[in-house]
């Protein structure tokens, strides 16, 4: 019995330490909490290779989560918060980069390559068809 109690206590400690950062955060409304969660998923941890702020245990990610929480509770809009992060950490923090000259290849590239591929494919099909038609004659 004692052992079970101890085990329960240890489990509780384990769980509490994982959710520590977020249990400290109280939101004035459910909407604010949802906004916090979506923003923390939308922004990349600047210290990490490919982790969003919600997911990262890095010190800076925790600081930025606290910053987002503060700004939401101050009534800042999502756009203002995103702009704040970009002003300090650059476009790198955005999982959906803004369209600009530097990022245009990311946005246009896949479609452009698809079109090139389709054109080449159509060309090859057309030529083969023509050749076969020529042979048949």
């Amino acid at each position: 019995m004692k052992l079970i109690k101890l085990a329960c206590l240890m489990m509780a400690f384990l769980l509490s330490s994982y959710s520590f950062a977020d249990t400290l955060m109280t939101f004035s409304s459910e909407l604010n909490q949802t906004r916090f969660q979506s923003l923390a998923k939308e922004l990349r941890c600047p210290k990490c290779q490919n982790q969003d702020l919600a997911d990262s245990q890095a010190g800076i990610a925790k600081d930025l989560r606290i910053q987002i929480h503060e700004m939401i509770e101050q009534g800042k809009t999502d756009q203002e918060i995103v702009d704040y992060m970009v002003a300090r950490y650059g476009d790198f923090v955005l999982y959906r980069p803004k369209y600009s000259a530097a990022t245009s290849i990311l946005w246009v590239g896949p479609a452009a390559f698809l079109i090139i591929g389709l054109v080449v494919f159509a060309g090859v099909v057309y030529r083969n068809k023509k050749r076969r038609a020529g042979k048949a004659l």
Binding site: K47, A58, I60, L64, Q67, G90
Partner: peptide, 12 residues
């Protein structure tokens, strides 16, 4: 608190 660090875009 690391606030100035955030303003400078410091990650560590």
């Amino acid at each position: 608190l690391g606030k100035f660090g955030v303003d400078m875009g410091v990650t560590g």
